[in-house]
Design a protein around this nucleic acid. Structure first.
Lengths: 101, 101
DNA sequence: CAACTGTATGATTATTTACTCATACATCCA
DNA sequence: TGGATGTATGAGTAAATAATCATACAGTTG
């Protein structure tokens, strides 16, 4: 079911990780301080996204680097933001209209 | 947070509803038999999607018709399916390679 | 008004999720 | 080999989620 792909994206902490990985691969030791979560928690999210298929893993010595596997993931986030923005504009429009009455 | 938009989509039952609404508006009484869930459960999912902003409501007599508000939602589902499909192909590729060894 | 139809919602439950702490595991290096 | 570093994972917990049943609510029609 493609809901798994969507679920892997639809969570604030994971969205932050995805944003971080936008500019290329990062290791766990870089990611968890950046997002302000425990190492264990961050690792769990990364494992989850790895298993769902949206991330890739590369080991280098002690460190493990994660990166995005599909550019479409960024496109999906962009579309979600676009919808949010459009809704905000509509809400504003309604308020503006109310002020005019 | 745009995670709310994504969460509204990232659930099997709601994905089925979204697929149903692909061809235009439907009332609850049409939707819940089509997806094989209780009326109350279906109504809850519709309310959830309405509040997240991805659905629109139109009342006509007793019936309430729901429809998709943003075509981007369908685009997001399409991208998720594309990723799934690509992963399936890669898995198949790996298996094929293993058979050749 | 009363009965009926279509939809929403309170109460409850089982499951899943996100998180934390402690610890295990793996790799590197002195 | 032993200690240090980076990552993963078991156990436990609180909160969120999806579902059900019963019931309330709204609009229609006799």
């Amino acid at each position: 079911m493609c809901a798994d792909i969507l679920k892997a994206i639809a969570q604030p902490t994971r969205l932050r990780i995805i944003e971080l990985l936008r500019d290329g691969e990062h290791c766990v030791c870089e990611i968890y301080p950046a997002i302000g979560h425990e190492q264990s928690n961050t690792s769990r999210h990364l494992q989850m996204m790895l298993k769902s298929g949206i991330l890739r893993q590369r080991k280098e010595g002690l460190k493990i680097f994660y990166s995005l596997r599909h550019p479409e993931v960024l496109e999906m986030v962009r579309l979600a933001e676009l919808i949010m923005q459009r809704e905000a504009e509509q809400t504003l429009g309604v308020l503006t209209a109310k002020c005019r009455t």
